[in-house]
């Protein structure tokens, strides 16, 4: 990918983010959009781990849980500002990923899947069992970020939905920019090399365990920041954010859109976030449809939606 293509991708997404609000029939859609961006952020992190480095994680929601609860707990217990709590959560997630990453990433395929899954479940279990601290399965409230009132003091009045739409859009763009830069860097090339063949990567001098660990830690930080933003914008958080189903949703979003591409992953996040909103009319059938989509896409578009569509268009163009 050339430098120009990177900026084209970022401009496309930024343009969509700017134009979309003109089509919103009501303020509620800002909320939905903000949710799409948060999910896309954690999915971009997974693209680095799964798409670049070829590893898998069925427990990344655990990091989202850590980020979310850092924002809920640190302000009340440590007196930290919520914005600092986001950093603290990211730091804890990174440290934890560093700690467990080394032994876990020696494993491959299904074994890696079950090990990460075990990690995620442990985190969600701690969150729902330590009632005294986290309020248990009922969840707990999260303090306000305080940034919106700051804007109001400066004379800029915007609604909560608009604020979170804007903030999350900016954070997501930064996340995408970092991910695209990483793709071209030496580290990114090393990740893609070991994705192709670990043995081959090793023989050309790539420190395979180290590179895998880097991908794992980076994606953990993405998930953690996304979890923090989710907690802050909802003002409330339950342990479900760290649950197994959330991990599965994240991986599904990534693979649905196309795990090799940052743009595709964003598309996947958008589709799977919007789906339940569309299906509220048939709430009974939501699970049925979600399951069906997961199976059908994997069978008929194994590389994900966006890469398959692009391949089809290119094929026609030639």
């Amino acid at each position: 990918m050339t430098c120009r293509r990177k900026w084209i991708q970022i401009s496309i997404i930024a343009a969509i983010m700017l134009v979309l609000p003109f089509f919103f029939p009501s303020g509620y859609y800002y909320r939905v959009g903000a949710l799409v961006f948060v999910n896309a952020l954690s999915v971009v992190g997974l693209v680095i781990l799964v798409g670049y480095a070829g590893q898998i994680s069925l427990g990344h929601a655990g990091f989202a849980g850590i980020g979310a609860y850092a924002c809920a707990l640190a302000p009340t217990h440590l007196g930290l500002h919520p914005a600092v709590a986001i950093l603290l959560g990211a730091l804890i997630s990174a440290a934890l990923a560093l700690l467990i990453g080394r032994p876990i990433l020696r494993l491959k395929g299904y074994y890696l899947g079950v090990a990460t899954l075990g990690f995620g479940i442990l985190v969600s279990m701690v969150l729902s069992n330590e009632r005294a601290l986290t309020g248990g399965p009922d969840g707990m409230s999260v303090p306000d970020l305080g940034l919106r009132s700051l804007l109001r003091d400066m004379g800029w009045r915007i609604s909560g939905g608009e604020f979170w739409y804007g903030l999350n859009a900016v954070v997501l763009l930064i996340g995408i920019w970092i991910a695209l830069n990483l793709y071209q860097s030496a580290t990114g090339r090393a990740m893609r090399a070991l994705h192709g063949s670990e043995v081959a990567a090793q023989t050309v001098g790539i420190d395979v365990p180290r590179i895998k660990l880097q991908a794992f830690v980076i994606s953990a930080v993405y998930a953690s920041v996304a979890g923090s933003l989710l907690a802050l914008q909802n003002g409330f958080i339950t342990p479900e954010v760290a649950g197994f189903m959330h991990s599965v949703e994240m991986v599904t979003m990534a693979v649905l859109g196309g795990v090799g591409s940052v743009l595709g992953a964003t598309l996947g996040a958008a589709i799977l976030t919007l789906l339940p909103q569309v299906l509220t009319v048939f709430a009974e059938y939501e699970q049925l449809v979600l399951g069906l989509i997961m199976v059908l896409v994997m069978i008929f578009l194994p590389r994900g939606l966006l890469p398959s569509i692009v391949a089809k268009l290119r094929g026609r163009g030639e």
């Binding site: 299904y110 997961m294 199976v295 069978i299």
Partner: peptide, 10 residues
Amino acid sequence: VVSLIIITIG
């Protein structure tokens, strides 16, 4: 493997 995991979870 990732695709197969998603198919059976789906």
